[in-house]
């Protein structure tokens, strides 16, 4: 990213935060939830978009993160941030383990396996109601002793910014290069000396850790955890957001989460119809704009920076032929 786009993003964020107090409580809540999904979409795009590991257990990890934190705090009276961290650690470990177990699976097989894992997590949480309170929902402690939602908005923003910064550093490091190489051709990546197994496990652990972070925050913001936080419908919603935004870049994935969440609330008067409509939008995106709907705008935005900074030495921009459809 060049200087100008960074400056614009920072300025826009500062402006938005400075004026956040003007939002009514309802839209503050929507913004917070959008950021929750933003963290999840970015971390899922790390896994599915960068490494090509099409996991369907991402929301299950959010749910595990939330429940782990809530239960540990309930049992041991941990401070809440420590509980959230424990949830993240739990998700990293479990995610790494899942990554290890399905090292030899690819494409649909990995999807089926993680779908199975997520169903087992959901069934266990709903059934073991003596521990998890099952379908009735587990009451959690509030993160902040605040009567308004505005402080939560700042926390959510900070978490999203931190997550994006860390994941951004990761995908810009050599690991990001290896991840994409594995996505393009796992065999050739191995022949090029890339430790494929280690990369896949790390990607699973990191992405699941961020899912756990989002889940932990959600648990202590909403005040109740239910098994449906990690169910298949939520996973489908996350997939809709990420694919519509553009699953191969972190910012476009977050953009997709923001746009979809905002539209879902804005179109609330249309009730149930919103969901299948977004299903259709997803299908149309896959059919006609596989890079996502936010991606072209994002690329245009980045080019804005290139042109200003060095009009002559700007590298020949590669025509965006990635979609192939």
């Amino acid at each position: 990213m060049r200087g100008l786009p960074i400056a614009i993003v920072l300025a826009a964020a500062a402006l938005a935060l400075a004026n956040a107090g003007r939002l009514n409580p309802y839209w503050t809540h929507v913004a917070i939830i959008a950021m929750y999904y933003g963290i999840l979409a970015a971390s899922w795009s790390l896994l599915a978009g960068y490494v090509g590991l099409f996991s369907l257990s991402h929301m299950a990890f959010a749910s595990i993160g939330g429940y782990t934190s809530a239960l540990l705090i309930q049992w041991f009276r941990l401070p809440i941030p420590l509980g959230i961290v424990a949830g993240v650690v739990m998700c990293c470990a479990l995610g790494g383990a899942i990554g290890w177990v399905c090292l030899r699976m690819s494409g649909p097989y990995l999807a089926i396996f993680t779908l199975g894992f997520s169903e087992i997590v959901r069934i266990t949480i709903s059934t073991e109601d003596e521990v998890t309170a099952g379908m009735a929902g587990l009451h959690t402690h509030s993160l902040l002793a605040s009567a308004t939602r505005l402080p939560y908005l700042y926390v959510a923003f900070a978490l999203l910014a931190l997550s994006l910064l860390l994941m951004g550093l990761l995908v810009r490091s050599r690991w990001g290069l290896f991840f994409r190489a594995i996505r393009e051709d796992e065999q050739a990546a191995a022949a090029s000396g890339v430790a494929v197994a280690r990369c896949r496990i790390v990607a699973f652990a990191v992405a699941s850790g961020f899912a756990g972070l989002a889940g932990g925050f959600y648990a202590h913001y909403i005040g109740i955890m239910t098994p449906s936080v990690g169910d298949l419908d939520e996973m489908a919603k996350l997939l809709v957001m990420t694919v519509i935004g553009g699953m191969e870049r972190l910012p476009t994935a977050v953009g997709g989460a923001f746009v979809v969440e905002f539209l879902l609330e804005w179109l609330r008067e249309y009730g149930q119809w919103r969901l299948p409509v977004f299903g259709i939008v997803l299908l149309l995106t896959m059919r006609f704009a596989r890079n996502g709907l936010v991606t072209p705008f994002w690329l245009q935005f980045l080019r804005l920076g290139e042109a200003r900074v060095s009009p002559l030495s700007a590298a020949p921009t590669v025509p965006d032929k990635e979609s192939g459809t």
């Binding site: 090509g52 099409f54 369907l56 494409g107 649909p108 999807a111 419908d233 489908a236 997939l239 809709v240 694919v243 969901l275 299948p276 299903g279 259709i280 997803l282 299908l283 896959m286 059919r287 596989r290």
Partner: peptide, 13 residues
Amino acid sequence: EYGLIVTFGLAYF
């Protein structure tokens, strides 16, 4: 990836 997302999206729809 195409088959996966499309059939999964179809299920959601």
